[in-house]
Amino acid sequence: MNTPVITDTMNKDFVLAVEGLTVSFDGFKAVNDLSFYVDENEIRVIIGPNGAGKTTVLDLICGRTKATTGSIKFKDQELTRMKEHEIVRAGVGRKFQNPSIYEDLTVFENLEISYPKGRSVVGALTFRRDAPVKERVQEIAEMIFLADQLDQRAEYLSHGQKQWLEIGMLLIQDPELLMLDEPVAGMSVSERKKTAELLHTIIKNRSVIVIEHDMKFVEDIAHKVTVLHQGKILSEGPMAKVQADPKVIEVYLGH
C-alpha cells in the first residue's frame, strides 16, 4: 500500500506530469506513449525534427486536441478531462506558433481581454476598466516593449511586436505553466535578443515549456531538453548530454 503514496508525493513535486500520452489520427500515432515531468520553476525546451509531434504535445496539454489514452496531471488536476478554458483558469498559458492576437483591437484591449477577471458573460458585461487593470496593463506593456503602442490597433504591429504582444497576453494571466511555441521564429537578430531577455525575466516563479529550433537560443535558456522523434522521446536531459547523445545526432544529422 505504500506505492500509491509515494507516487502521490512524487507527483506533487512536479508541476506537470505527462504519463503514457498517446493520440492517434486515423491510426497514425502523432504522439506515442509519451511520458515526461516538468518541475516547478523549470524551463523545459522541446526540440525535434518537423512532424515529431512537438506542437501536438502542447495541443494535448492545453486541451486543444483530446488524447486517445494517457494522462496529463497539472498540480494533481487531470487536464485530459478538462475544457480549454478550464485548463487556462487552472493556470496553464499557451502561445501559438503564429502570433495569435486580435488584429481589430488595440494593444490595450488585447491585454485587457487577457486580464483574468470578468471571464463569465455577466462578468464581461459588468467589467470595469479600473485602476488595477490599467496599472497591470501598463506594467505588462512595459515588459513587452509596447508601452508606447497601447492605443494602436494590433494589426499595425510588426511581426516581432505581435509575438511580444501574445507573450504579454499570457503574462497578464500570470500562469503557473507557460507554453511557448517557437517564440523567436521569424524574428530579426535584435528582436531575438530582446525576446531572450524578456523570457529570462518572465520565467521567474513559473514553469515554462518552450518549443524552439534555434539551438543557440535553446542553449541560452533551457534547464532541460526533451528531444521528440516520431511522437516518442528520443533523449532527455541537460543540453550538453542531449547534444552528445548519438541517437540525437543520428536523427538530426544522419539523413
Partner: peptide, 27 residues
Amino acid sequence: SKLGRILVAMRDKEDRVRFSGYDVSNF
C-alpha cells in the same frame, strides 16, 4: 462593454479567446 470586445476578438481568433480562459460558446 468588455463583452463587445470579446465578441470582436472571437470573430477574429476564437482559439485565442478560448485560451485566454473564456468559455467562447457561452458568449
